[in-house]
Design a protein around this nucleic acid. Structure first.
Length: 800
DNA sequence: CCCCGCGGGTTTTTT
DNA sequence: ACCCGCGGGG
């Protein structure tokens, strides 16, 4: 490791930043406003600690997302190359501790991490076993109550003794059963990762002392979003060596609904009386225009610490507040504007981000962008790893890694169908429950289960044989193991039957992509017990981790996912009552204030330009309903903002009557008629699969290559009238699409051994290609190392 | 045991 | 609009 020089680290830092960076021992609270260079301060401080000869293994930096940890690691590596400071999410930190001390909480080290849907399954089973009725508390509600309890470190026995609401009473009966079943399955849910570690530290003073000693310097990011369990963990690790430094901003606390406790940051100074508090109030990100809007808004919150945000940046453009007739118009207008800005050369797709309160609102935006050939990425909940075929294959792996994983067994025992029905599974489960053994064990003893038909016993035994053949390969490289799973289980035949070769997002293509992920993992982790590590990584990836920077795409995401990011130009849609603030968060002040913070977070992501919009009517669950503007809008400095109201008139059926366009908005009109638009969209979606989860879209040469209809699509999307009426617009559309694709050789031009050139990396050789259609990947060896590309979008020139 | 069609609930945000 | 779970027919 290269130890940096202290002096060099302090150059180019402001006085408060320097103060924070030079703080070494004792607790510190960094109140960091949005865009105040927080990551810079944290990385510099770690480098500073290293410069004081503090060993890297004594430092741990905890973040909320892997993305944030990666970013931090990258930046720290520039200051102190080769350092081995522990960086990662709270959950990963706990997962690793728990691997080591599993036996102390009754687990084995190969324990599984249940994701939300796994634990939902497990919960249903526990409810059944506990024999409670779900008429007054749904499984979801019960799961919620239990999750909240875990976040507050309430164990089943403690819960039993408390005063409880009717729902909580039901949950309290399920809770111990659920926990016992998890232990039998050698599994934990997300909350358990924290809970087990917190309990471990509480009940074992020796271990606590040892770890406190080991992790002498702890840094916590986004401290305003920690819950009680997380609080307890860092507290326990900071008693003998209270060198705990936390960064956060009470105004950006947006995870209260998940157990985050704002008091953790508001009371930090009480918890650690010797604390040094540093305020970072200068903003380096946004224009004064944006900042004033944010500040005016957040002043309306009561539970906060007063901050004085300021910036030296240029005034910039006024923030825009815009009304639309409905969600479609909103989406179309935004998409048009993005196209106009891109085609005029003023901006790149990656300059834009669109935020919304709910994932479902991205639908119409997606549609509008897709129709115009604008590439975009959606950072949303329905991710790759949630897909059925992916979960199926992973479930086999889970079962190999942990034969006690009952959720996985239930999932795969009849996938693909092999004559083991629900009744049989139920009987296996009952047998397993009564003998307190995993279901796989019950399956092995199928002949002992009296209620099972002969035929079922045979089928179950057959499954066990399949499993054993797969499990025999447990220590093989992941790629081999995964191919073995797909073959032995018969899943490959099942996939072929259900997959459409042309459809890129087909199950087959997805499984292929999973296998390439495994190949990639094998390559990066040649030695460590890779199956377990792979499964852990998969379990702990978050939605926000999917966000890719430096990618020439517009970003669509929820306001929650936007935290920690920044974009030159930001649209926030649906700033409407009952949506933001959300209907269900208006019960109490705390929730209402959290909604306000959510908008604050969104606003402060914008660097140069910001538009808030709301609609007069919005389609909700199928039908269109009138909506009113968000009460938060009245809290903004409206007089200095640019307000635009759509003047488009609509008839009863929501059809446009008057085309006079939108107010003082001076965009070129890029509307093409509705019919043509519809057709173009239909055809385009045919090429790429009408899949909402598809994270990339572009009408590039890929489409040309695979679709003979491409030319007619172009013709149809630009009807003759439109062509003669508004040539520049059509030109603009084309330019926008071209920008995304460039002059790209056909995908078949990229093969193993092909020499290619990349703008940044220079010349290189293709080592391997994999995947299908827009997901086709190439691994390329450049002078400075290997890089992976999505061929459909990468700027790779074929040399020679 | 498997497949298909219907009806009801549902979406706020996610490690 | 969409997803999931349930019931009936094959």
């Amino acid at each position: 490791m290269d130890v940096p020089h202290s002096d060099a680290l302090l150059r180019e830092l402001t006085a408060p930043q320097c103060e924070a960076v030079q703080h070494v021992d004792g607790p510190m609270l960094i109140l960091a406003g949005p865009g105040s260079g927080k990551t810079r301060v944290v990385t510099h401080r770690i480098a500073y600690l290293l410069a004081q000869d503090i060993p890297d293994w004594q430092i741990a930096a905890l973040t909320f997302t892997n993305k944030a940890a990666d970013e931090m690691r990258l930046r720290l590596d520039k200051l102190a190359p080769g350092q081995k400071v522990w960086m990662g999410t709270f959950h990963r930190f706990c997962a690793q501790l728990l691997r080591r001390y599993a036996s102390m909480v009754g687990l084995q080290e190969n324990y599984s991490i249940y994701d939300t849907s796994d634990s939902k399954q497990a919960m249903k089973r526990a409810i059944e076993a506990a024999g409670v009725s779900t008429t007054h508390a749904s499984p979801d509600q019960i799961a919620n109550v239990i999750s909240k309890a875990k976040n507050k470190l309430i164990t089943p026995d403690v819960m039993e003794g408390q005063m409880l609401s009717p729902k909580e009473t039901v949950a309290a009966k399920v809770y111990p059963v659920y926990q016992r079943q998890l232990l039998t399955a050698n599994a934990v849910d997300f909350d358990d990762l924290l809970l087990h570690v917190a309990n471990l530290l509480r009940h074992s003073p020796e271990l606590r002392g040892e770890l406190d000693q080991r992790f002498r310097y702890i840094l916590v990011d986004e401290y305003q979003d920690t819950n009680l369990a997380q609080y307890a963990i860092v507290r326990a690790l900071s008693i003998d060596h209270p060198n705990l430094s936390v960064t956060g901003d009470p105004d950006q606390s947006i995870y209260g609904w998940r157990g985050a406790d704002l008091n953790n940051i508001l009371d930090f100074e009480k918890d650690y009386p010797s604390v040094r508090t540093v305020r970072l109030e200068q903003n380096y990100r946004s224009t004064p225009n944006v900042l004033r809007v944010a500040d005016q808004l957040i002043r309306h919150n009561r539970r906060r610490k007063q901050k004085n945000l300021f910036t030296d940046n240029d005034e910039g453009e006024p923030v825009i507040l815009r009304w639309f007739e409905n969600g479609y118009e909103e989406a179309d207008s935004i998409a048009d504007e993005i196209v106009a800005a891109i085609s005029s050369g003023l901006a790149r797709p990656s300059d834009f981000a669109i935020f919304c309160r709910m994932n479902s609102l991205t639908r119409s935006l997606e549609h509008a962008l897709r129709g115009r050939g604008v590439p975009y990425q959606i950072v949303n909940g329905v991710e790759f790893y949630q897909r059925k075929e992916i979960k199926d294959v992973l479930a086999y792996l889970h079962l190999v890694n942990n034969p006690g994983h009952d959720v996985a067994l239930t999932r795969v025992i009849n996938t693909p169908t092999r004559g083991i029905g629900a009744k049989t599974v139920q009987r296996l489960q009952a047998f397993a429950d009564s003998h307190n053994i995993p279901m796989l064990e019950a399956a092995r003893r199928a002949e002992q289960i009296e209620s099972l038909a002969k035929r079922s016993v045979t089928m179950v035994k057959k499954f066990v044989a399949i499993y054993d053949r797969i499990a025999a390969r447990a220590t093989a490289p992941l790629e081999d193991l995964m191919r073995c799973v797909v073959q032995e289980s018969g899943y490959d035949k099942f996939l072929e039957k259900n997959s459409d070769e042309a459809d890129d997002s087909s199950p087959l293509g997805n499984v292929d992509e999973l296998i390439s992920a495994a190949v990639d993992f094998d390559r990066r982790h040649p030695d460590d017990g890779s199956l377990e590590a792979f499964l852990e990584q998969v379990a702990l990836v978050s939605d926000t981790d999917a966000f890719e920077e430096n990618d020439q795409r517009v970003t669509l995401m929820t306001l929650h996912a936007s935290k920690g990011l920044e974009f030159p130009r930001v649209f926030i849609v649906g700033v409407e009552d009952d949506l933001l603030p959300h209907k269900r968060s208006k019960e109490d002040d705390a929730q209402f204030e959290e909604e306000r913070r959510l908008l604050f977070v969104g606003i402060t992501r914008a660097k140069q330009w910001l538009q808030l919009s709301c609609c007069k009517r919005r389609m909700i669950r199928g039908d269109t309903r009138p909506v009113i503007a968000s009460p938060f809008l009245n809290e903004l400095p409206l007089e200095e903002m640019k307000r635009i109201e759509s003047t488009v008139q609509r008839n009863y059926f929501d059809q446009e009557i008057d085309q006079s366009g939108g107010g003082d908005w001076d965009l070129p009109e890029i509307q093409i008629n509705a019919e043509a638009q519809g057709e173009a969209q239909a055809d385009v979606s045919f090429d790429f699969g009408a899949n909402q989860d598809e994270d990339v879209f572009s009408s590039d040469d890929q489409a040309r290559e695979s679709s003979p209809a491409f030319d007619s699509v172009t013709a149809e999307s630009a009807p003759p009238e439109a062509k003669t009426k508004s040539i520049p617009e059509i030109g603009a559309l084309k330019t926008a699409a071209d920008l995304m694709s460039g002059n790209r050789p056909p995908l078949t031009a990229y093969r193993e051994g092909t020499t290619v050139r990349h703008y940044d990396y220079g010349e290189g050789t293709i080592l391997a290609v994999s995947g299908l259609g827009p997901k086709r990947m190439a691994r390329v060896q450049f002078a400075d190392g290997e890089h992976n590309f999505r061929l459909a979008f990468a700027k790779l020139e074929v040399v020679g």
